Simulated assay, not measured.
Amino acid sequence: MKQLEGFGKFLESLRGKMSLREAAHKSGLSHAYIRDLELERNRSTNEKINPSPITLKKLSDAYNISYTDLMSKAGYLENEQEPKAESGEQDQVEMADTLFIEVSTKEMIYHTRLGQLSRSVNSLLDFSHFLDQLEEQGFKKMDTDLFVNLNHVQKYVEREGKLYFDPLGVGKYVVIAAIRQKKYHDLLIRSVARNTGKGLEYQYDRNASATESRFSSLKFPS
């Protein structure tokens, strides 16, 4: 991974006259973290930091710059000229059968019912296009580095923020971020109803029962 020399200064130039808080609002990143990226170090620990592909996607959207170019300058696409003729179809099948995907700065881990497999982030010619594919395949971002295939979710435990991939809730599951749970609450209920073949009325009634149960357990002073 060979990053452009002075990459932090390059990010600062992309921000231009935009304030750090405005950049934070547009990207969804904290203004302090954006400044750390521009300085290429964590000001709390003084350690060198590098933005992840997810962070770069947010910055490319905020600064209206090609994501591929930004990934290249960050050093993630140094092997982008290598052929990838056979991997497209393979990745497409994996995405359809995948329950959820974890993304790190170096690899993507596909979790299926049979196990898991990884793909190097460096092997992706256009990570932005890959994210678009995820959306088309029914995936939603449920945490910083977690993408869940809603086509496979069969149980949603609201009080714990858990998504199960079996109706009994005894197998694999993921815990989603509270802000995403609030954002996708209705979508999750509809997805579970569709995937299990049970009507929306049942899902909402069950959800309401769980809520009522929580409130009934509370004791208020007389």
Score class of each variant (00 low, 15 high):
Met1Phe: 11
Gln3Thr: 15
Gly6Ile: 06
Gly6Cys: 10
Phe7Asp: 02
Gly8Cys: 11
Ser13Trp: 05
Arg15Asn: 03
Gly16Phe: 07
Arg21His: 08
Arg21Tyr: 10
His25Leu: 13
Leu29Gln: 03
His31Pro: 00
His31Ile: 02
Tyr33Gly: 01
Ile34Gly: 01
Arg35Gln: 15
Arg35Ser: 15
Asp36Tyr: 02
Glu40Met: 02
Arg41Val: 07
Arg41Cys: 04
Thr45Val: 07
Thr45Ile: 07
Pro51Gly: 03
Ile54Val: 07
Ile54Phe: 01
Asp61Gln: 11
Asp61His: 06
Ile65His: 05
Ile65Lys: 08
Asp69Leu: 06
Asp69Asn: 05
Leu70Tyr: 00
Ala74Pro: 10
Gly75Ile: 03
Gly75Cys: 06
Gly75Asp: 02
Tyr76Val: 00
Gln81Arg: 14
Glu82Trp: 03
Glu86Thr: 12
Gln92Asn: 11
Val93Pro: 05
Val93Arg: 14
Met95Phe: 00
Leu99Trp: 08
Leu99Cys: 07
Glu102Thr: 11
Val103Thr: 02
Thr112Met: 07
Thr112Gly: 05
Thr112Arg: 06
Thr112Cys: 06
Leu114Val: 09
Leu114Tyr: 07
Ser118His: 08
Arg119Trp: 04
Ser120Glu: 02
Asn122Phe: 15
Asn122Lys: 14
Ser123Asn: 11
Leu124Ala: 04
Leu124Glu: 03
His129Ala: 15
His129Ile: 12
Phe130Thr: 01
Phe130Ile: 00
Leu131Ile: 14
Asp132Ile: 11
Asp132Gln: 12
Gln133Lys: 00
Gln137Thr: 14
Phe139Gln: 08
Met142Ser: 05
Leu146Ser: 03
Asn149Cys: 08
Asn149Leu: 09
Leu150Arg: 13
Val153Ile: 02
Gln154Ala: 10
Lys155Trp: 07
Lys155Ala: 12
Tyr156Asn: 12
Glu160Asn: 15
Glu160Leu: 15
Lys162Asp: 08
Lys162Ser: 09
Leu163Ala: 07
Tyr164Ser: 04
Asp166Gln: 04
Leu168Phe: 09
Gly171Asp: 12
Gly171His: 12
Tyr173Cys: 10
Tyr173Gly: 01
Val174Leu: 09
Arg180His: 10
Lys182Gln: 15
Lys183Val: 10
His185Ile: 05
Ile189Gln: 10
Ile189Trp: 04
Asn195His: 03
Thr196Val: 08
Thr196Ile: 05
Lys198Ile: 13
Glu201Gly: 06
Tyr202Lys: 12
Gln203Tyr: 06
Gln203Met: 12
Asp205Thr: 08
Arg206Ser: 09
Asn207Lys: 12
Ala208Cys: 05
Ala210Phe: 06
Glu212Asp: 13
Ser213Asn: 13
Phe220Glu: 15
Pro221Thr: 09
Ser222Gln: 12
